[in-house]
Amino acid sequence: MEDDEWEPPKILLAVDLVILTLRETRLQVLLVKRGIEPYLGAYALPGGFLFDEHEDIEAAARRELSEEAGLADVHLEELGVYGEPGRDPRGRVVSVAYLAIAPSLPEPIAGTDAADACWMSVEDLLSGRVGLAFDHHRIIGDGIERARVKLEHTALATAFCGETFTISDLQQVYEAVWGVRLDPRNFYRKVKGARGFIIPVGSLQRPENGRPARLFKAGPVRVLHPPMARSTSVPPEAQVTREGGVRS
Rank of each mutant, 00 (worst) to 15 (best):
residue 45 L to T: 05
residue 46 P to H: 05
residue 46 P to Y: 03
residue 47 G to L: 04
residue 47 G to M: 05
residue 47 G to V: 04
residue 47 G to P: 03
residue 47 G to H: 03
residue 47 G to F: 02
residue 48 G to W: 00
residue 50 L to Q: 08
residue 50 L to A: 11
residue 52 D to V: 09
residue 53 E to I: 09
residue 53 E to H: 10
residue 54 H to Q: 14
residue 55 E to R: 07
residue 56 D to H: 11
residue 56 D to G: 13
residue 56 D to C: 09
residue 57 I to Q: 14
residue 58 E to S: 02
residue 59 A to P: 06
residue 59 A to W: 10
residue 59 A to R: 13
residue 60 A to E: 02
residue 60 A to R: 01
residue 61 A to S: 14
residue 62 R to P: 01
residue 62 R to I: 05
residue 62 R to E: 08
residue 63 R to F: 06
residue 64 E to C: 09
residue 65 L to C: 09
residue 66 S to R: 08
residue 66 S to I: 06
residue 68 E to T: 05
residue 69 A to G: 10
residue 69 A to N: 07
residue 70 G to P: 10
residue 71 L to G: 03
residue 72 A to F: 12
residue 72 A to P: 05
residue 73 D to Y: 08
residue 73 D to I: 06
residue 73 D to C: 07
residue 74 V to I: 15
residue 75 H to A: 13
residue 75 H to I: 12
residue 77 E to G: 10
residue 78 E to T: 12
residue 78 E to P: 06
residue 78 E to R: 15
residue 79 L to A: 08
residue 79 L to F: 11
residue 81 V to N: 12
residue 81 V to I: 15
residue 82 Y to D: 02
residue 82 Y to P: 00
residue 83 G to F: 11
residue 83 G to K: 11
residue 84 E to L: 13
residue 86 G to H: 02
residue 87 R to M: 08
residue 87 R to P: 02
residue 87 R to V: 03
residue 89 P to W: 00
residue 89 P to C: 03
residue 90 R to I: 04
residue 91 G to S: 04
residue 92 R to S: 05
residue 93 V to L: 04
residue 94 V to T: 06
residue 94 V to P: 00
residue 95 S to Y: 06
residue 95 S to P: 09
residue 96 V to T: 07
residue 96 V to L: 07
residue 97 A to E: 03
residue 99 L to G: 00
residue 99 L to P: 03
residue 102 A to C: 09
residue 103 P to N: 14
residue 104 S to R: 15
